[in-house]
């Protein structure tokens, strides 16, 4: 009797481990359009509304815990806000001067006066966030039915958030710009130093800016924004002039090539509630 129970227990374990390994191998071996990925997409469309509903139900609980955390962080945030306010005041004075020049230049140029509206923005609500060390993704409540496609850029009021990684009828998964897969061309500061930006490996939430010209004079506080398509043969996924972040720190190495420029993303990924998906990012 005892031997039979032991044999049954071991058999169950072997079957479950084998099933897991088979699933793992099959999943890893197929393309993103494969059958098992399809099962995940179907599950997303079925479980999405359940997650969405549960997220609404449990929001008061989250807010309660958030309130405790926010109160503790409030003092630190206030000090930082005062520093930022002083910096922005200085920038504002410069911006007003630039604005006056820009108004005159606008009469000569066909400047973009439409803002983001020409990129076909679709408002969406974030209902699941998973900003872990492994997955920098969120899920939103809009999908293919709303004109959203894989690869569409996603922004919020602060700046660039990420891109659509996968979409079903009414839901989509968004990969954040802090994910290891993110990289795009950008400009830095008012001198428009061209370069690229990627996440810093080993430091979630930190981005690294790498200028094309290693001697470019990039300073703390400089704004980093998307360059958009600079060559028609290689179209950028992101429209131009979307704020990515601000230069937080410049680590000087032994030479210009060793310099590491750290960028603080403009969007706060722990406070994402509403985002916009740009469904027509290559609009002229």
């Amino acid at each position: 009797m005892h031997d039979k129970a032991v044999r049954r227990r071991r058999a169950v374990l072997v079957v479950l481990v084998a099933a897991s390994l088979i699933l793992l191998t099959a999943y890893y071996g197929e393309s993103s359009d494969g059958r098992l990925h399809g099962v995940q997409r179907t599950a997303l469309s079925v479980l999405g509304p359940i997650q969405d509903g549960a997220s609404r139900v449990f929001k008061p609980v989250r807010d309660l815990f958030g309130w405790f955390g926010d109160t503790i962080d409030a003092k630190d945030q206030r000090d930082k806000a005062v520093e930022q306010r002083d910096a922005y005041r200085a920038q504002l004075v410069k911006a007003q001067q630039d604005l006056a020049e820009a108004r005159q230049r606008a009469q000569l140029n066909t400047a973009d006066a439409e803002g983001m509206s020409k990129y076909g923005p679709v408002d969406a609500r974030v209902y699941v966030r998973s900003p872990s060390t492994w997955y920098q993704q969120v899920q939103i409540n809009k999908g293919l039915d709303d004109g959203i496609h894989r690869g569409d850029p996603v922004i919020n009021g602060a700046g660039l958030v990420g891109k659509v990684a996968d979409a079903t009828g009414s839901h989509a998964v968004v990969t954040l710009i802090t994910d290891q897969s993110f990289a795009t061309s950008v400009f830095a500061g008012d001198q428009r130093h061209a370069g690229s930006i990627t996440p810093a490996i080993g430091a979630p939430g930190d981005l690294l800016y790498e200028p094309v010209d290693a001697t470019a004079n990039v300073r703390e506080g400089d704004l980093i924004y998307t360059a958009g398509t600079t060559d028609d043969r290689l179209r950028s996924r992101y429209p131009p002039a979307i704020l990515v972040g601000t230069v937080r720190r410049v680590d000087l190495g032994e030479g210009d090539l060793d310099k590491r420029i750290h960028v603080q993303p403009a969007a706060d990924f722990l406070q994402l509630d509403m985002v916009q998906v740009l469904t027509n990012p290559n609009a002229a």
Binding site: L23, A43, L44, L47, Y135, V173
Partner: peptide, 10 residues
């Protein structure tokens, strides 16, 4: 694992 960001089986 059924959520898209996960690898099925892990």
């Amino acid at each position: 694992d059924l959520t898209p960001e996960h690898t099925l089986g892990v």
